[in-house]
Nucleic acid binder design. Structure first.
Lengths: 176, 176
DNA sequence: GGCAATTAGTTATCATGGCAACGATTGTTA
DNA sequence: TAACAATCGTTGCCATGATAACTAATTGCC
């Protein structure tokens, strides 16, 4: 039998202490999306917090590790971040100050600054991997394989449909 | 025929310029959730930006309006915010300075500070309503009614399963 | 009555997110 | 080759998000 939260009313409304129902189901969906993301983000932040890393810092560090020995340019990191609006420079400054990454002007194109993980950075991430991987699984553990696939597809659809409306300003500039 | 993004590969991977596929579908789902929310949040922020309101400010103002003539206590507003971690005081300071809300010490319980919308605040919101309502609908316009229902249910499930891990610290205190 | 525990808000501190402006470098082209 | 444009990154400014410490008011309990 379905749990109490499937009553129409619904769970979000009760959660947020609202007296009035949502104006429409689509409005409820929008709010649910944002609120759920807020909760999940905090869960990840809590996980990396003991390592003295903020969630965005962890995100950036992981991207740098993923780039391998060739390094990766600053703005490329920003593009791959979950929040692509971030001011990446200061974030990398902290990672560099903590000895987790190393920066170096690119050889042919001196405009670029390439980033590399240091052994310490790699060690830190490697230690965190099991926990993060576990949380990745736990977040959607409630969803069956079938629902999970549908969930990803719906998110992809929503993201694509709203890409124009929600792109950070610096990525839109190219369209002018 | 399904659009290109349904190819396994997948759309998110291409979007973020990743060379390697996700470790698992559940990891992909977690990242898709966070990234989608980021895009949608920006879309709403863009919408209220011309009114000199940040997205959280709009959110708070709307909650105050929803409370009606009885007013609403400061911390109650925070509970109902999409991001319940916010430092609400400064946000309300701005709204008050802009003349959109009015604050007043509660009568019987002088610890509380009740907030009320001013006529200007109401006017501003009323003018914004059509646009916000429209965006609420547009965000998930790609989803059929059936998928929409499933979407909301999945988000509710995820949120409930992660409530403990992702609650802001001040709400957890009660459990100690 | 009197005092500890609670509750409501405020404030301080630090890190991020959003934006615009700037400097440095490279590419283009008249 | 001398402007000019585009690209890459950095920096400044302001607003938010996360937490903890702190004040004030109220409640409970003896």
């Amino acid at each position: 039998m379905p749990p109490a939260r499937s009553r129409r009313g619904g769970s979000l409304q009760a959660e947020m202490g609202q007296r009035r129902p949502f104006r429409s189901k689509r409005q409820e969906a929008a709010v649910a999306l944002l609120r759920t993301a807020s909760v999940v983000t905090r869960a990840f932040a809590r996980l990396v917090e003991p390592s003295e890393l903020s969630w965005p810092q962890y995100n950036a560090l992981r991207i740098v590790r993923g780039a391998g020995s060739g390094g990766i340019a600053t703005l490329t990191i920003r593009e791959r971040m979950i929040d692509e609006g971030t001011t990446i420079t200061r974030l990398l400054d902290k990672l560099e100050a903590a000895g987790l990454i190393r920066r170096e002007r690119s050889r042919p194109d001196r405009r670029q600054v390439l980033c590399f993980v240091t052994p310490e950075g790699r060690r830190l991430l490697d230690g965190l991997d099991p926990k993060v991987d576990a949380l990745d699984e736990e977040v959607t553990a409630e969803l069956s394989e079938t629902r999970l696939t549908a969930f990803i597809d719906m998110l992809d659809d929503i993201r694509q449909a709203n890409a124009g409306r929600g792109a950070p300003r610096h990525t839109v500039r190219a369209e002018v």
